[in-house]
Design a protein around this nucleic acid. Structure first.
Length: 515
RNA sequence: GCGGGCAUAGCUCAGAUGGUAGAGCGUCAGCUUCCCAAGCUGAAAGUCGCGAGUUCGAAUCUCGUUGCCCGCUCCA
């Protein structure tokens, strides 16, 4: 398993699918570049998704919103508050905590001590006890409550100012220990924010602060009314978008599986409230069918979320069995009206739909499907890379590396190869065929090695078809057409090539499996 | 972020005890070859991740740093 992963990473680099970013400067942690073949494969994946979602649904339309958005959007979406954590590690237990949570816990302890004093006094004084008076006058209780109040105030100020040093100082002064082990050996408190920020204009200060979007979804939500009105869509309808998103993950790991810069393929489906489970089920099935059209069913599974995010009332992942285990590939969420309502509130603009059937206005509910494009790329690659005994050969050790990509996703559809590179007529004929076929799909011409080696090269990058031009071609205008996986050949007339290959590499077959 | 491991040619890796680098595959040029790698001749390619230090001398020893892998943690 691990071995496959290692092979995949080096294969991806060796054949120009994926390179480590900034490699000549020692790399950049968790960032990768797509090489020529990688870019082609990724584009094909995006096309497959776009066609399945937009082209195949008359009620789904596309969008390409900007990465920069008004900072209030991330306030409304909950990202500013939910992902702005002061983190601290305990050096002994190796456990990580939120510093504010630890301090709040300490405040609770102080208040609990005060309550205990009050309880003790109540028992002592019996029915004549005036609890409020006791709280206001008893020195011990006052000490506890005042300390709690001071701490709370200081915590609030430090959090507001983002003063990590003071949070650290508080941990020390209050002698707060690791709840698990009692150790007080803390690292510095560090602010962790999921979102990258940058500056718009050359004016410094908070006013120009912008975030790089941590999800593409919000670009869809804030354009909901624009799109609905300009496309005359009626509910239910969807908006699809492919684009980069950025998350400052604590650790970026596992090759392109978790990157800080990544690409999402998202669709938000707007529906009448109360119909969300129906659509949630619909999209669950549709999205799984999309995956199964290119990936064996046994490598895919659903995984329900145990903990729902702040915006969702149902959520499921489609997981793929990566070389390092079953991991999330796509998420399907019932997002309720959380986002639209939140934007409506913060922007003061109505984000409602008039339902002619019900004769009423409402904020639509949303079901989201969101695939990681890079994860899809990784799943497709790890599923395709195979080292096998050459079919039809029983010679020991005669193996080949072959990328069994679906023909519709393969970066190169067809290679045109002359059987003999030193025969001018054959070479000229092969080049003529190449020049003809390149109008129809991605082709490569190669005559720099023996025919067997040329086949292997194409196998390694997943080219589904190889055309070989031989002496018979010069006589009767036919060539051999070799299929990658079976390595079987058939004699085909040159005139038929474009249609025959084109038909097999077309996305129509894939789409037909889903719809 | 912590702990462990690793870093030598495009890829996979050799290079006890310090004496300034090799192989296989791949690539390129030519020969050969009428359908599936490993035939012949030749060639290019590495400041041994980077930076300090020890030493007459460091791929090799020490420290630091960066990147990758694994575990923990984290993961709208």
């Amino acid at each position: 398993m691990e071995d496959l992963f290692k092979r995949l990473v080096s294969h991806a680099k060796e054949y120009g699918f994926i390179y480590p970013s900034s490699e000549i400067y020692d790399g950049l942690n968790g960032v990768y570049d797509y090489g020529p073949l990688g870019a082609a494969l990724k584009n094909n994946i995006k096309t497959y998704w776009w066609k399945a979602m937009v082209q195949m649904h008359e009620n789904i339309v596309g969008l390409d919103s900007a990465i920069f958005m008004h900072p209030k959007i991330w306030k409304a979406s909950g990202h500013v508050d939910a992902f702005n954590d002061p983190l601290v590690d305990n050096k002994d237990s190796k456990k990580r905590y939120r510093a504010d949570v630890l301090i709040e816990g300490e405040i609770d302890k102080m208040l609990a001590k005060a309550d205990k004093e009050v309880d003790k006094a109540a028992k002592r004084f019996g029915e004549t006890f005036n609890a409020q008076f006791f709280r206001e006058t008893n020195p011990r209780v006052l000490e506890y409550t005042q300390r709690a109040a001071t701490t709370e105030k200081r915590l609030a100020e430090a959090m507001k100012a983002g003063d990590m040093a003071d949070l650290g100082a508080m941990l020390a002064e209050l002698e707060i220990a690791d709840p698990d082990t009692g150790s007080r050996n803390w690292t510095d408190v560090r602010q962790f924010n999921l979102m990258f920020s940058t500056q718009m204009s050359n004016i410094a200060g908070d006013d120009g602060k912008l975030y790089l979007r941590p999800e593409t979804a919000q670009g869809i939500f804030v354009n909901f009314l624009n799109v609905q009105k300009t496309t005359r869509q009626k509910l239910p309808f969807g908006i699809a978008q492919i684009g980069k998103a950025f998350r400052n993950e604590i650790v970026a790991r596992q090759f392109i599986f978790r990157m800080r810069e990544f690409e999402q393929m998202e669709m938000q489906f707007f529906i009448r409230p109360g119909t969300e489970m129906e659509w949630y089920t619909y999209w669950k099935e549709k999205r799984m069918a999309w995956h199964r059209a290119v990936t064996p069913a046994e490598k895919l599974r659903f995984k329900d979320h145990d903990n729902l995010a702040h915006y969702a009332n149902a959520a499921v992942d489609i997981q793929f069995e990566f070389p390092f285990g079953f991991k999330e590939l796509e998420g399907i969420h019932s997002r309720t009206d959380f986002d639209l309502s939140s934007h409506q509130e913060l922007s003061g603009k109505k984000l409602q739909y008039f339902d002619p059937e019900l004769s009423e206005n409402y904020v639509p509910y949303v079901v989201e499907t969101s695939v990681g494009c890079d994860r899809m790329f990784l799943s497709v690659m790890s599923n395709a890379l195979i080292e096998e005994q050459v079919p039809g050969s029983d010679e020991e050790g005669n193996t080949r590396e072959v990328l069994k990509l679906h023909p519709a996703l393969a970066p190169v559809k067809c290679a045109i190869l002359p059987l003999k590179a030193n025969n001018d007529e054959i070479v000229a004929k092969a080049k003529a065929i190449y020049n003809k076929l390149r109008f129809h799909f991605e082709c490569q011409y190669d005559d720099t090695a023996s025919i067997g080696k040329l086949y292997r090269r194409q196998d390694a990058v997943g080219t589904p078809y190889c055309i070989t031009v031989d002496f018979d071609t010069l006589e009767n205008d036919t060539v051999t057409l070799r299929e990658r996986d079976s390595m079987q050949q058939q004699r085909v007339s040159i005139n038929e090539l474009a249609a025959l290959i084109g038909n097999n590499v077309d996305m129509a077959h894939l789409l037909a499996k889903i719809y």
